[in-house]
Design a binder for these strands. Structure first.
Lengths: 196, 196
DNA sequence: TGCGGGAAACCGACTGGACGGTATGCACGA
DNA sequence: TCGTGCATACCGTCCAGTCGGTTTCCCGCA
């Protein structure tokens, strides 16, 4: 996958179609027609249909990971950092909703090795997130009566579900929703009683 | 779709295969082989592959809706009822994890009219859930600074995500996780300040 | 109890079409 | 004249669904 207007157009069309119809229900023919190119052109830039899908993941994963790193690198109060991370990843997810939809819906359609690669990259994000919460727990800010795995899953679930209910054309404002979901999460994991 | 050992076996095999390989990647041939029957037998009980998928949804939706109705009918303190509803639906989801996985992953593979039917049934559940939270708000128990839609989505997201992280063979106990997730949710939506 | 017959259950080879991927060739700029 | 970028026709495969045929089951009747 290289840079070119063909590759870009194809990727854009693919994301759109995969998100609305699903990966399996979208033929390569449909994609190239929507992108206004021919199959030959497409297969000149991509090795396979699978390649197309992986490219979408690749881009989204890189983006989110680099944003996470950047926010954490800025440092500061744990709760503030966590809030910033949450708000940012929700907003980014909303900005890339079609990609997100495809991501969660079609990951199992990838070839096994590529699925592993995606899982590996996601775990990197996951682990950094866990570390952040752990820091908050050591500082006595976050509750320790619930396993971290559950806490983390509780937040990631919101990201997953976004594409199932949020509509950019709807009444809810992007930033507002991001702050509201973040607030719900942070409120629920904050320690309220005195340390044991 | 009628009752018979063939129909049951086929359904069971289909759920299992759809959950692990995805709907599109599973051929009818694979299903009937796994179920130990022939294609002819299967097509005697089901109209299409699509029918098979819809049957899975149908059963899960009916089950969860009837459990919801029953719990609400018992009545009682709003927060207690909500907790019971949440814990129950999480436990049920865990008990039927393969169905849930298929549900969230392959709904878009259904024919348009059947997708609508599923959406309709889900909305029925959704609306009842909203009503419960609204009651809690009127009673001054739940916060009103966040739209109900966001609150509800925040909970449903946990159900969706379950199949992505929870493993019945893992260290986490089903009931415990259900209670923990419920607690996180209820804690976050409870009103903490005095009414405005 | 045995029999006839009709319907329901079941079998599995086959078909028609879709689809991912390829082979071949051409245009054009360096 | 050579390579890159692309067009187009084509191929092999796979698979949902069908269909003619066979077996099993059941029930009325002698």
């Amino acid at each position: 996958m290289k840079d070119s207007h063909v590759a870009d157009d194809v990727t854009r069309a693919a994301v759109e179609l995969f998100a609305t119809q699903g990966y399996a229900n979208t033929s390569v023919q449909q994609i190239v027609e929507a992108a206004g190119v021919t199959k030959g052109a497409m297969y000149h830039y991509f090795e396979s249909k699978d390649d197309l899908l992986f490219g979408i993941y690749e881009k989204l994963l890189s983006l989110q990971k680099s944003r996470l790193d950047e926010i954490i690198a800025r440092g500061g109060d744990v709760e503030e950092v966590l809030r910033a991370v949450c708000v940012d990843v929700i907003e980014t997810s909303i900005d890339h909703m079609p990609e997100g939809t495809v991501f969660f819906r079609s990951m199992h359609m990838l070839s096994a090795p590529r699925q592993q690669e995606v899982t590996r990259r996601r775990r990197a994000y996951h682990d950094e997130f866990v570390e952040l919460i752990d820091r908050g727990r050591r500082d006595g800010v976050f509750r320790t009566d619930i396993p971290v795995a559950v806490l983390v899953a509780h937040f990631f679930s919101d990201l997953h579900y976004l594409s199932h209910w949020y509509s950019p054309e709807g009444p809810e404002d992007k930033t507002l929703v991001a702050e509201q979901l973040t607030d719900l999460f942070v409120t629920s994991i904050r320690r309220t009683d005195a340390p044991a």
